[in-house]
Amino acid sequence: MLKGAESAEIDRAIRTVAAGDAVLSRSVAEHVLGRADAWPSGQLSGLTPREREVLDLIAQGLGNATIAARLHLSPKTVGNHISAIFTKLGISSRAEAIVRARDAGLGVTRP
C-alpha cells in the first residue's frame, strides 16, 4: 500500500491480507508488470550481443582477465560490461549472473 491510500482501500487491503492474499496498489502492480515485460522472449533479451557474450563467458567460469584476453578487450571494459549486465538483469552478484545465464542456456563450454 502507498501512504496516500484511501481508508476504504486500506480496509479492503487489511481484509484481503487477513484472508491470506496479497495486495498491490495499481502503481506498484504496473511497475512490477513493466519489469516483467522487459523479458518478453527470454530473460536476457535486454542485453547487447557483447553483454551476452561476456555473460556466456562468466557462466563458463572465466574470470575478468581471461574474458578480456579472449575478447581482446581491456579488463576495465569487461568490468563495465559486467556492471551493465548486473544493472539490466537486476542482480548484484556473479553467482546470480551465472544462474540467470545458465537458465537461459548460456555457459555451455564449446570446443
Rank of each mutant, 00 (worst) to 15 (best):
L73G: 07
I85Y: 09
R94F: 02
R52S: 11
Q43A: 13
R52P: 02
I91M: 08
E30P: 00
S27R: 04
E9S: 06
L2G: 12
R15G: 07
V17R: 14
I58T: 02
E53W: 00
G105S: 03
I82G: 05
I98M: 09
L73Y: 09
T109G: 07
I14Y: 10
L47D: 02
I91R: 05
R110D: 14
A95R: 07
I67P: 01
V108Q: 10
V108H: 07
A104V: 00
H81D: 13
G34Q: 08
R94H: 09
L55A: 06
L71D: 10
A18I: 06
A5E: 15
I67T: 09
H72Q: 13
G20C: 05
R100C: 04
T87P: 01
A38I: 05
L47A: 02
E6T: 02
T77L: 05
P75W: 07
L57R: 00
Q60N: 01
M1P: 02
Q60G: 02
L2C: 11
A101R: 04
I67C: 03
G105I: 04
V108C: 03
V99D: 12
L33M: 11
Q43E: 15
A95Y: 01
L2Y: 15
R110A: 08
A59L: 03
I85G: 04
G20T: 00
G105R: 02
L73S: 07
A101E: 04
G63C: 03
L57H: 02
D56P: 01
I85D: 11
R35D: 15
K88N: 13
R26N: 14
V32H: 10
E9D: 11
A22T: 13
I98W: 08
A5W: 09
L24W: 14
L73H: 04
V108Y: 09
Q43N: 11
W39Q: 08
V54I: 11
E53K: 00
P111L: 03
V32M: 10
K88A: 12
I82A: 05
A38E: 14
H81Q: 14
S7G: 06
S7T: 08
E51Y: 05
T77Q: 11
N80W: 08
H81Y: 15
T66P: 04
H31G: 04
A95V: 04
S92M: 07
R50N: 12
A95F: 00
S25K: 01
L33P: 01
E9P: 00
K88L: 13
K3E: 14
H31K: 11
L24I: 03
V99S: 13
A5T: 03
R102Q: 15
A84M: 08
L57F: 01
L33S: 07
S25F: 02
R50G: 10
R50L: 13
F86T: 11
P49W: 06
R70S: 05
G46Y: 06
T77S: 13
A8F: 09
A5L: 05
P111N: 02
D103C: 03
A18E: 11
T66F: 08
V78C: 09
R102C: 12
N80T: 01
R102K: 14
L55P: 04
I10D: 13
V108I: 07
R50P: 02
D37C: 10
E6R: 07
K88T: 05
G63P: 04
N64G: 08
R50F: 09
S92Q: 07
G90T: 03
P40T: 14
V23H: 05
H31A: 12
L47R: 00
A69D: 13
H81K: 04
G4C: 10
I85M: 01
R52V: 10
V28M: 13
I10K: 12
A13N: 10
